Structure formats: structure tokens, C-alpha cells
Amino acid sequence: MLYGITAAATAFLLSAALAVLLRGPALRLGALDRRQPREVPLTGGPAVVLVTAAVAGAGHGTGVVPLGDGVGGLLAAGAAVALLGLAADVWRLRGRVLVAGTAVAAALVVPYEDTGAVGGILAAAWITALAAAFRGLDHADGVAGTVGVVTAFGVGACAAAEMRDGVAVLMSVLAAALTGVLLHNWHPARIALGAGGSLFAGFVLASAAVLLRAGHGAGSSAGVLFALTAVVAADAVLVVVSRRSVRRPLSRSGPDHLAHRLRRLGLTAQGAAVLLGAGAFAGVLAGVLAHTGWAGAGTLLAVGAVAAAAVIALLRVPVYGIRRTAPAGVFPGQRLLACKERIRVEPSPLRSVDPGQGVRHT
């Protein structure tokens, strides 16, 4: 217990400091969030990965808290996925390359002896999809960090209930590292996670959840896994359905995520992050209760019903074909016009406020 608190505090302080120290190298390498009208370095991802691996590895190496069977390999696979994401941040790799690499890493961490061949394939596919969806969630200031912290605490609680100390410590360290970066990623963001950090967080969270649910019933496991990641899953479903309904390519970015639509309804950037964090907490609570046997299938079905209702309701919010004007960082009297891959600034006699400030398109 004492080590877990110490490890979490250390991870929090180190990630907050390292994210700032890496700002210079990120600027030189061009690892920037190009969806922002200002330079936002993608140093949050390397900070989270390095700190999580170092602190969790120190506990394992000293023998204080061994990570346990499969957890060390999980962390190594997550680091490999993070490197692939970092390469995408610098060189803008194609999305299919990231998905393929993540799928290979997921296939290596699934405990097939507990899941079986078919269950293992489905688990690997779910880990891959969840990691990609978590990357998509990193489209707005503070959203990925907030949801990631809540989800990590939930998975850690499930691990603690089963006396899986290695997984529990890993989740607490990951949550603390994300919190340290969240200090800089809260709106207006000065640092972002990027593909490296978001893919790593999503991959580690999904893989740890699969390890904990391996050997349980397939139906109940699917319900628990969905509840633990309800907001991430809802965002992915919302984007896919929305883009397919207007015959928009899935790879083409747009202002169609949860946070974009909440901003269209009048919420602030901070309000959208808090609301999505609260939704993640509700789903995580249901998942933890179901995993520990304190709640039944009805609770999990309720989470699914609420998520489906939210997706259906937010699909009615118009997001395509709306011109964005005067986002943060643009001088009064200017207007941004998005032209595919570039942004052109035009003078405008009026200043208007964009309800999508603080969000980015992915």
C-alpha cells in the first residue's frame, strides 16, 4: 500500500516535469499538434510512457511489487506501440500502419490458455480497436487524460479485488502519469499526448482489463470490458456511424466526436471534459461492481442502454458543413477557413466565437 502511494506520487511529479523538459526536442523534431492554431508539442506521450515504464519497472526489478505473469510483456508491447505512435507524431504515418502494428502487439499479450483461440482473437481485436478509439478521444483538451485516469483507477480496483498487485500498481502509476500530463493538457492545452501517449494508454488499459477478465464467462466479460471503457467505445461508435451515414471516409477527420458535439450544445471545453469524465466514472463504477460480483447483468445492460441513447441523441447535433470562425489564438478580425490539409487566414470585419474552441478534428 505504501509503495503504491509512493510510486503514484513519483509518477505524477516526474511526468509533469518531463513533459515540460521535452518541449524543446519536440519543437525541433516537429512533433506538434498540427490541428491547433498554435504550437502545442506532443511531449505528453513520451512523458507518460517513460515514467510509467520506469516506475513500474523499478518496483518489479527491486522485487517490491513484481508485475506478475504477462504484465511485463504487456508493458513491453505497450512501449512498442508507443514508439510506433511517436513515429506517427513525427512523420505522420498512415492510420493502417498504426492499426496493423497495434494488432500484432495485441496478439502477443492475449492469454490464449485462458481465453481459447477464438476468444483470444476477439480479445486482440478488442484491444486494437480500443487503443485506436482512445487515440481518437485525444481530439480535445483534457478529454483523453481525464477519461484515461478514471479508467485506470477502475481497472486498478478490479486488479486489487483479485489481489493482482502488479496490475494494480501499474494502473495506479499510469493514472498518476496521465494526471501529471493533464496539468498541462487542460484547456487551453500547452502540451498534448499525441498518438504515442494515447495509443500507449489505450493499449495498456485494454490489455490489463483483458488479463483480469481472462477465464471468466465470455458474455459477462464483454459487459464488464464495455462498462470500463464506455465513453471511449461510445465516441468510436458515434464517429463511425456519423461518417458512414453521410458517406464520409472513416479516415477523414471531422468535428464529429463527443466533445465536438457537446461544445455545439453550448458546453465549454472544460465542461465537456468534466462531463465525459463523469460518464466514464459511472461506467467504470458499474464495471467494477459487476467484476467483483456486487452487480449483475442488469447494471451492465443499463450502461449499454445509456451509452446507446447518448449516441443516438448526439447524432442529431449538426457538425458537418459548419464553418469554424475565430478560434483561440487568432487575432480579432480574422477568420479561419479550413481547406483540406491547410488553413488559410482571411480578414473579416466581424469577430465571431466558435463553439468548437478547445477541440480538434481527428
Rank of each mutant, 00 (worst) to 15 (best):
L42E: 07
R96W: 14
H60L: 07
V71E: 06
L42M: 08
L108R: 05
V49C: 00
V48N: 00
L108F: 14
L122M: 11
L32N: 15
A123R: 02
L83N: 09
V65G: 04
R34D: 07
A123S: 06
G61D: 05
G72L: 11
G78L: 03
G57V: 01
V81N: 01
R92L: 14
A77L: 01
V49M: 00
T52W: 06
G45C: 09
V109C: 08
G120D: 06
L122H: 07
R35L: 08
P46T: 00
V97Q: 11
A117R: 09
W91E: 15
A107Q: 08
V48A: 03
G70H: 08
V109K: 03
A76Y: 12
T102I: 11
L93Q: 10
R35M: 09
V110T: 11
R35Q: 11
V90K: 15
A87C: 10
L108G: 08
T43A: 11
T43Q: 14
A82M: 06
V55K: 00
G44P: 01
A123C: 04
L84M: 14
L86A: 14
A47R: 03
G45V: 03
A58I: 08
G85S: 09
V55N: 00
A53V: 14
G116Y: 05
G120V: 10
I121M: 09
V64N: 04
G95E: 08
T43R: 14
D89V: 12
A88N: 15
G95A: 14
A53E: 03
R96M: 06
D33H: 01
G85Y: 09
E113C: 06
P111D: 11
G73V: 03
R96T: 12
Q36H: 14
V48T: 01
G78A: 04
G59H: 02
A31G: 04
E113P: 07
G73N: 00
A56C: 04
V90Q: 10
A82Y: 00
G95V: 06
R94Y: 07
L98A: 10
A80K: 09
G44F: 04
V104F: 07
L84H: 13
T43H: 15
L83R: 09
I121S: 02
E113I: 12
A103R: 01
P111H: 10
V118I: 13
A54G: 02
G72C: 13
A123N: 03
G57T: 02
